[in-house]
Design a protein around this nucleic acid. Structure first.
Length: 103
DNA sequence: TGAATGACAAATT
DNA sequence: TAATTTGCCATTC
């Protein structure tokens, strides 16, 4: 029901709040979701998002300013970020502090 | 119920 | 500076 308050749902809400053109790290989302040390779980939640999800999962990146995904998903994330104005090279690297969402 | 898993991150080499 | 190891913890199997 609407009173569900699982880590997974808190992650969904946190990610949904990231503004277009900005990015947040897995750690940032973990922190916002009430479990500061669960950065890894954030990735776990996003990896299991339904195909039809409208969540801007592409705005979640790692602390190095690079993309953690591989293969086709990685290319999709890179394209979506570029589409939002983020300067990211073909290797999926960019200047994190230049686009990081200030919590 | 418990072991395995992993879209991380900080510490250590 | 870069590579490897260690700690982390919600889910999944």
């Amino acid at each position: 029901m609407h009173s569900d308050d699982t880590f997974q749902q808190r992650v969904w809400h946190s990610v949904a709040a990231i503004p277009s053109g900005k990015v947040a790290t897995y750690g940032d989302i973990a922190h916002l979701s009430g479990s500061p040390r669960a950065a890894r779980q954030v990735g776990g939640v996003l990896s299991r998002l339904p195909e039809n999800s409208q969540l801007p999962w592409h705005r979640v990146v790692n602390r190095q300013g690079t993309l953690s995904l591989t293969g086709d998903r990685r290319l999709l994330q890179r394209d979506r970020l570029q589409a939002e104005g983020i300067e990211i090279n073909d290797g999926g690297e960019f200047v994190l502090e230049h686009y990081r969402w200030q919590l």
